[in-house]
Computed example of a mutant assay.
Amino acid sequence: MNSALKGLPLVALVAVTLAGCAKDGYYHDRNEDYAGAKVAAPLKLPETRDTSRYRDIMPVPEAAGQFYARESEFEAPLPQTMASSSAVNAGQVALRESAAGSWLVVGAPPAAVWPELERFSQMRGLQVTNKDASRGVISTADADIELRQGLRQGSSEIRCETAGQTNTLCLTELQSHLEARSASASIASMSAQQAPGAQSMELQKRGNDWVMIMPFAIDRAWAELNFQLSNNFDMQGRRELVSADETSKSFVIDYVTESERTRGFVDSLTSLSLWESTHRLNLTLTPQGSVTVMQVSSAEDETLSADDQRELLDFVSGLLR
C-alpha cells in the first residue's frame, strides 16, 4: 500500500479507492458525462437525398383531448388487458347487429379488405353495375357492398344492403369468403403492412364534467359499445353491465370508481366499509352532428367527481382503440 494512504481512516480509504474505480476502473460514472455534455449542431443531410427513405425514428403522436390537472393526487390507473377478449384481431371477421341492421367487422384496414371485395364479386359472378374504390362501394344487381373504416384502429366495416336494408344472404356469403381468406393468412398478412387509420376518441371537459367524443354515427357507436361492454364488463364486484337500452342509446353499469379504489384506511373506517364497493352509473350516448358524445352520471343521485368521470371514460375508450 502506498505510504501516503496508511494514515487515512478505513472509510476515507474506501471512498478514495471507489472514486478511482468510478473514473477509470470497474464502472463509468455517467454523472460527469451529463455535466459536461454540449449541444451539437443538428445533422444536415444532402438536399439531393431521397426523402422517402427517411423518417422519424421515434415519432411522437399528437395528443388527443385536453390537458387535465387532476383534482386529487396522482394514482396509477388499473392496468388494462393487452387485448380485449372481444377485440377483432388481425384478419378475423365478426358480425355486429343493431336495430339499424347488421354488418361485418374485419380486423384489417380498408386498403387490405378492398381487393377481397373485388375478388368476392368476381368469384360469385355478381353483375357489377358500379365500382368506386374511393368511396368503398361495389354496386351489383342484387346488393350494394359498402366498405368503410372501422371504429377500432386497423379495422374495417362492411355492409351488404338492398334498398337500404341488410341483405342477409350477401352478408353471410361475404363473411364465409373473408373467413376463408383470413384462414389462408391473405388478409392478415396485408393488414400488417397497412398503417391504421381510425380516428381516435377524444376526452373533453365541458363545465365541471367530462365527456368522450366518438367520431362515429350514434348507431355504429352504440352497437360497438354494446358488444364491448357485454364482453368486458363481466367482473362481478368490479365492473358489470347491468342493462343496455338501444332506444335511448344508454347503458347502466356497476363500477368500482377510482376514488373508491384509492380511498385510505381512515376513510374506510369513517364510511364503516372496509371493502371496495361498486357504484351504479349511467352511460348515455347523444348524437351531435357527425359525432357521438358519451356522458357518465350516477344512477344513485351521488356526486361523481371529475377524476372518476375521466378515469371511467378513458377505460371505456380503451375498449375501442
Rank of each mutant, 00 (worst) to 15 (best):
D254G: 13
A15H: 04
G125L: 14
M294I: 07
A244P: 03
L281A: 14
S134R: 14
N31S: 09
E258L: 15
L8E: 13
G264P: 02
S317C: 11
L203P: 02
H279G: 04
Q127R: 14
A12I: 10
T172P: 00
T140P: 02
E224D: 14
C170E: 03
T172C: 02
I138A: 00
Q295E: 15
V252G: 10
L312Q: 14
Q204C: 00
V242K: 14
E32S: 09
R181D: 02
C160R: 01
Q92F: 02
I158V: 15
L229A: 10
D314W: 09
K23P: 03
D301V: 12
Y68E: 05
D314Q: 15
V266M: 12
T257S: 15
L312E: 10
A83W: 06
F265M: 11
L281H: 14
S98Q: 07
A183P: 00
R206V: 13
R220E: 11
E157I: 01
P61K: 04
R49F: 04
R152Q: 15
L312G: 09
D308V: 13
F315W: 15
V211R: 06
E32L: 11
S72I: 07
E161W: 03
S290C: 07
A183E: 07
Q149E: 15
R321L: 05
M1H: 11
P115F: 10
S317V: 00
S200Y: 04
L274D: 05
F251H: 10
T140K: 06
E246K: 11
A217V: 07
Q194V: 06
G164M: 12
Q80K: 14
L174Q: 06
A192H: 06
R159C: 01
E173W: 04
A76N: 08
E276W: 02
M190D: 01
G107W: 01
I138D: 02
L18G: 01
D301C: 11
V11L: 12
E276T: 12
V16K: 11
P110R: 04
R263L: 03
S86Y: 06
H28D: 04
E32D: 08
E118I: 12
L178F: 02
L45M: 09
G197N: 04
D56K: 08
F233S: 04
Q92Y: 01
Q153P: 12
A306E: 14
A94K: 05
R119V: 05
E260F: 02
V106F: 01
D245W: 07
T166H: 00
R280F: 10
Q66N: 08
D142F: 07
T51A: 09
V93L: 03
G318S: 15
L174Y: 04
M214K: 01
G65L: 00
Q288L: 11
I145E: 00
S176D: 05
Q236V: 13
R239F: 05
D314L: 14
K131W: 00
Y54S: 06
E179Y: 00
K23C: 08
G164D: 09
T172S: 12
Y54W: 11
V293W: 03
M235H: 15
T17K: 06
S186F: 01
R152D: 06
E246G: 11
V256D: 00
L229V: 09
E300C: 13
A143L: 00
L10S: 12
R206G: 06
P9N: 14
V266F: 08
G20D: 07
A141Y: 10
N2T: 12
F67E: 03
E161T: 10
E32Y: 08
